[in-house]
Amino acid sequence: MAAGGDHGSPDSYRSPLASRYASPEMCFVFSDRYKFRTWRQLWLWLAEAEQTLGLPITDEQIQEMKSNLENIDFKMAAEEEKRLRHDVMAHVHTFGHCCPKAAGIIHLGATSCYVGDNTDLIILRNALDLLLPKLARVISRLADFAKERASLPTLGFTHFQPAQLTTVGKRCCLWIQDLCMDLQNLKRVRDDLRFRGVKGTTGTQASFLQLFEGDDHKVEQLDKMVTEKAGFKRAFIITGQTYTRKVDIEVLSVLASLGASVHKICTDIRLLANLKEMEEPFEKQQIGSSAMPYKRNPMRSERCCSLARHLMTLVMDPLQTASVQWFERTLDDSANRRICLAEAFLTADTILNTLQNISEGLVVYPKVIERRIRQELPFMATENIIMAMVKAGGSRQDCHEKIRVLSQQAASVVKQEGGDNDLIERIQVDAYFSPIHSQLDHLLDPSSFTGRASQQVQRFLEEEVYPLLKPYESVMKVKAELCL
């Protein structure tokens, strides 16, 4: 049975990233139509530049190519590739079939990587351009969430054990800070992308030097003109047959890092959902379990974690691919890159769409948070109580021993009897502590235990987050809708 299948058929496997999760716009960027249309555009740009620099290419040939950029006979191309065992030459023939007058000058002087690699770089750039505003929107939604809850005390956790208090907004800023680093890295790697350009079979530009009869300047002009037509500021000066596969490492490393950030955020949300302090959106008709109707599973956060793990592992592909590119190139890269580049971007696209949807509907339960604080705060307040007693004339050592005994009794009630923490009640009825009984409410005010959390939130948002989001103001209103 021949390899390949009808990918629109229910009898043929289709990647869930495309069929179930990723956005239509990201799927289109990695589609065959987008790819092969870009090949034709690159052939047109090459012909236009070659004509401008004096090669015998007519206006009629150029116009014929322009008129057929979208006229792609995919069936013919597939048949040609089956016959020739070469995808680029299959599309040269297919393009030439609908451009008979231009057929002889299509791909003039070029090698397969002229269309293959340059198209990949265009796709990487455009895919990054799709991700950047999506990530900015996630940051914006979380920034709104953090600002609104900047002063809401909550129990902090280290080692997932109760620690000092923080605020809900401050905790959210930990998430935002990681995503801001990801946004900066995505922008950097996007701006650092260079075009492969017009380089020939081993990167020496020998074929173009021959076409222009040894004119170095025209060869350099050709490279520059096509690079500018493709919208790049610069091209690699040095290439082998391909652009260095280190570029793929750079791009997928940034995406993998984004995956790590999203995994951490969504894990926190899942843990908070278990504590009943916070939940992701839950639709009115949504079913959490087929057997347990009360369940409210954090399905979206779980999906993000599941896909983020996949995204983090994909960076190993370009690392290994770059390491086995012998001399000017081997074909070890080809099949692998067809999979890992598309999957990385479709996965990143999915987790950003999902995280935006989550961040637009996060639900906080202040009463649950308050109750958990009441359970733990008495123990945390013991040092403040000791200091207040010393100020009232008591002995630190005597007070410490009193607190120690009462704390152990209260802990026994919590752990052995399943009761509430009654340390404060014990202190309130103990005559030894009568000098500070009137101060206990103040000493137990949760806001006095959150330090500068709310001020940190305000400063972080104003100095770091809002300036970073400013270039994306025009796209901030787009909502994230999930079908599944």
Rank of each mutant, 00 (worst) to 15 (best):
E328S: 02
E81W: 00
R14A: 14
A256W: 07
I249F: 09
E277A: 04
P366G: 09
V429C: 15
H159L: 01
F379R: 04
K367A: 14
M316L: 11
L222E: 00
S407P: 00
A230F: 05
T350D: 14
L174P: 05
Q205G: 11
Q409N: 09
L55P: 04
A47K: 01
T354N: 10
L142G: 02
M387G: 15
P153H: 00
L42M: 06
E79S: 10
R194G: 09
Q428P: 00
R337I: 06
T321Y: 08
Y21M: 00
T347I: 10
T52Y: 12
K134F: 07
L346M: 14
R20Y: 00
L44K: 05
G156F: 00
A47S: 08
N421L: 07
A335R: 04
P467Q: 08
K470T: 12
A348H: 03
D117C: 09
Q63M: 11
H437Y: 08
K470S: 14
A102R: 00
A22P: 09
T201R: 02
S151R: 11
P153N: 03
L423A: 05
Q241V: 02
C180D: 10
E220V: 09
E463M: 06
T94H: 11
L84Q: 14
A49E: 01
L443N: 02
F212W: 10
L352H: 04
Q320V: 10
E50N: 04
L211S: 07
K147R: 12
F157W: 11
Q205L: 05
D144V: 15
V251L: 13
V315E: 06
V88P: 04
L55W: 07
K246Y: 05
C172S: 09
F212H: 02
V315P: 11
K170F: 04
Q356P: 04
L355R: 05
A411L: 05
R329S: 03
L131G: 05
L142F: 12
Y432M: 07
L423I: 05
E280S: 02
E425Y: 12
G451V: 03
L128I: 12
T166K: 05
L406E: 06
E64A: 12
T58Q: 13
I249L: 09
R171Y: 02
L258E: 05
W39K: 00
Q41K: 11
V413I: 11
K391M: 09
Q61H: 10
F28R: 07
S447I: 13
L46M: 11
D248F: 06
F157Y: 13
L186F: 12
G8M: 15
L69Y: 07
L211N: 13
K229V: 07
S67E: 13
L272M: 14
E401S: 12
C483P: 15
D117Q: 00
W39L: 03
W45M: 09
